[in-house]
Design a protein around this nucleic acid. Structure first.
Ligand SMILES: [Mn+2]
Ligand SMILES: [Mn+2]
Ligand SMILES: [Zn+2]
Ligand SMILES: [Zn+2]
Lengths: 140, 140
DNA sequence: CAGAAAATGATAATGATTATCATTATTGGA
DNA sequence: TCCAATAATGATAATCATTATCATTTTCTG
């Protein structure tokens, strides 16, 4: 948390009550991937007058600072989660039957990255989503 | 083209004038990734009364049949391209400076897939986009 | 404290996509 | 060939997530 506060102030942002609450929501939802609207609903328990515009602005800033990951699955909206401290975002497998999302190791793409670097690119980030049928759904 | 017509009729769709025109547009734009609106603009050269709803419907059906790939880069809309005959979609590197899109080999993710299969998943498809600085932009 | 700058919340605007519906085209029998 | 059923189309309205705007409030700095 201290770590996060540092990043915020380094980015030139103040830790307002609203931002604090939104951060707490993200920390309390470990393992989930929340949409802006979902963040708003939960955050309003602590800050009832919170506006959706502030949620969008805050999530955007936090993602820009690397504090959050911002991912779009197979639907029209973005979802957010607290970032781990890896260099790049981790990746996901989504089950096309039950919709559950599974996390993948961050390092999985390292060899691919190497290959691309060799061709003269500088890799900044990468996004991978795999669509699959999960072990459980496979049993039916 | 025959190949494509087959897929269409197997999917229960007729090859109407509009669908023909849209398919021609996609074939004539090898290497590009077109949005629905861009497809409409070009297709209207041959079929001026074509409506945007038909373009969306057709692109959606063609993607569903595996004739087109449907990809969203870092912007709000989908882009389409003619599919190659690989099992899964190929992947992209987009330069964050000049915006150009580079194609990646389809097989790159095979080893990752193997790994996930071992865990009991059945992989259906996967989407990877890498954001990087391309060799040319790297020179500045 | 005063003034400047940053942040917030309500709400309007945007833009891509989807839904609706009346009209038109196609098709497989009678 | 004609008809009825079905599929497809095009215009346009509706949807929905996100962004922009702007007046108000909060925070900071001197
Ligand atoms: Mn995740
Ligand atoms: Mn491509
Ligand atoms: Zn499942
Ligand atoms: Zn470039």
């Amino acid at each position: 948390m201290e770590h996060i506060k540092e990043k915020l102030s380094q980015g030139g942002y103040k830790l307002t009550r609203q931002r604090q609450v939104i951060l707490e929501v993200m920390q309390d939802s470990e393992g989930e991937h929340l949409s802006a609207e979902e963040v708003l609903q939960v955050a309003r328990h602590k800050s009832p007058s919170l506006g959706i515009a502030t949620v969008y602005r805050t999530l955007e800033r936090l993602a820009g600072l690397g504090i959050l990951y911002k991912t779009r699955f197979d639907e029209g909206k973005y979802r957010y989660e607290l970032a781990d401290d890896a260099e790049h975002q981790h990746h996901h497998v989504q089950c096309i039957r039950c919709g559950r999302i599974f996390e993948l190791d961050e390092g999985l793409l390292d060899s691919i990255e190497q290959e691309i670097m060799k061709q003269g690119f500088t890799v900044i980030n990468h996004f991978l989503t795999i669509y699959a049928i999960c072990p459980e759904c496979n049993q039916d």
